[in-house]
Design a protein around this nucleic acid. Structure first.
Lengths: 251, 251
DNA sequence: AAGTGGTCTAGACCACGGT
DNA sequence: CCGTGGTCTAGACCACTTG
């Protein structure tokens, strides 16, 4: 496979707009891909070919190709060549924000109530969530977040004491646990699971909910380097909270 | 405001690893930011200062700064200078995939049943969702998607006939509506709203659900150029479907 | 050995913003 | 006016893959 080199009239696709050359090169290449002239996995002309074809210096061509690669349009392999990337499919992204910031951005007042904040002995399930040994200490916090007096999030969190030994001594009215944890252990990776659930009796009470009101549950596990920092279960009343997302595509 | 220039011992932060210079420059700058030596909104040394300080050519410095800017660490203003960006906060991303692909990737069989597929006269709400005139025709489809015989998604979709005039003539057993629409009208932007809801009676029937089972509802609006292509309401049984997401961070 | 991408340089010209 | 970032060039050396 890997197709043949795209014999391109690429120069025809170069707009004569007053824009930087590297951008016009990028645009020309994107349009070849968008119009199907260059197909996925097909080889793209080499840098030196493009230099000859477009009469542009190699650094400029290189920048165009490099940026298109980081934008997902192309795949480059040293010693081999440059290829049109597989269409990314139709994935769109959703952002999950920090609750306090989000509330502040809406111009509302954020407050919270600390329900629990203590050391526990990790049971096997909790230990595996944190990547620690069962029976070892872990920190556990339960906090209700309010937007203008209305509860909007129930945050139930396990924290790895090895990563954040001072977790229990913080004041979470001035700073959310997540903000604190991000400061002491910069996030390097994470995973979410979003699902719809019905709250149990205690959750209803804490969030002032009817028992038949569906909730969004976000379970999140966060790493810093090789260690798991924290596992959170964030419960949002379906009637008061929605996840918003925007996306832009490029095929 | 805009603080003072960072008087940096940046050279001290430059690792002597065998890595490209521009990457070591980037890493050194990131570590200054991460350690709080350079604070948000503070001015970063100019390109020429960095050239002198690090003994590296300006193009290399420029590349490092440019990439850090596109990665969100820095903000640059021509004629003014380079500044440390505000911490982005803690936004993480969730991906929303095409249902058929997702099922195929799990190695399961996807099938679907077309419940409705016809032209309607858009009522005011539907018209505004599609950006068309109330009373004008619109297309409406309702499709249930199955993963190995088990219903996992109820897709209720409005389509703009101006963008996809042949929508009603397609066979959606071989290709999902979204796949078809993406082909005839490349997506340029979109918006989601994810929430938790309880299904109504008809939805329960179509998804073979108990009435008290919470569901994820994704409402999605998709643009192609200036036109709205389609509005979808995707309903997922909470017990059979979860949204997964991974993220990598940089503070 | 030849061709590819990956990087780096020294120097140049420009557009912009503040003095 | 000066200093800033934004771009572009011609040429160079390197590491990698393939024949």
């Amino acid at each position: 496979m890997a197709g043949q080199t795209a014999i391109s009239q690429l120069s025809a696709a170069m707009s004569d707009q007053p824009a930087p050359i590297y951008q016009r090169v990028k645009q020309a290449i994107v349009s070849q891909i968008a119009e199907g002239v260059w197909k996925p996995n097909q080889r793209v002309p080499s840098e030196s070919e493009l230099v000859n074809e477009l009469g542009v210096s190699r650094m400029t061509i290189n920048r165009a190709l490099r940026e298109l690669t980081s934008e997902g349009y192309l795949i480059r392999m040293q010693g081999v060549g440059t290829f049109v990337a597989e269409s990314k499919g139709y994935t769109a992204m959703l952002e999950v924000h920090n609750i306090a910031e989000e509330i502040a951005q809406r111009g509302h007042r954020h407050s919270c109530k600390v329900i629990e904040l203590r050391e526990i002995k990790a049971d096997p399930e909790q230990a595996s969530l944190l990547g620690i040994i069962s029976g070892n200490p872990a920190f556990h916090s339960v906090i209700v977040h309010y937007e203008n007096e209305l509860p909007v999030q129930l945050e139930d969190r396990l924290v790895n004491p090895q990563v954040a030994p001072d977790y229990l001594q913080q004041d979470y009215h001035s700073q959310t646990p997540y903000t604190y944890l991000m400061r002491v252990a910069p996030l390097t990776a994470g995973e979410h699971i979003v699902e719809a659930v019905l709250p149990d009796r205690q959750q209803c009470k804490l969030l002032s909910l009817e028992s038949d009101e569906p909730c969004l549950l976000i379970r999140r596990q966060t790493w810093s380097e090789a260690k798991i920092v924290t596992c959170a279960r964030l419960l949002y009343p379906g009637s008061r909270y929605k996840l918003l997302g925007k996306f832009k595509g490029h095929g």
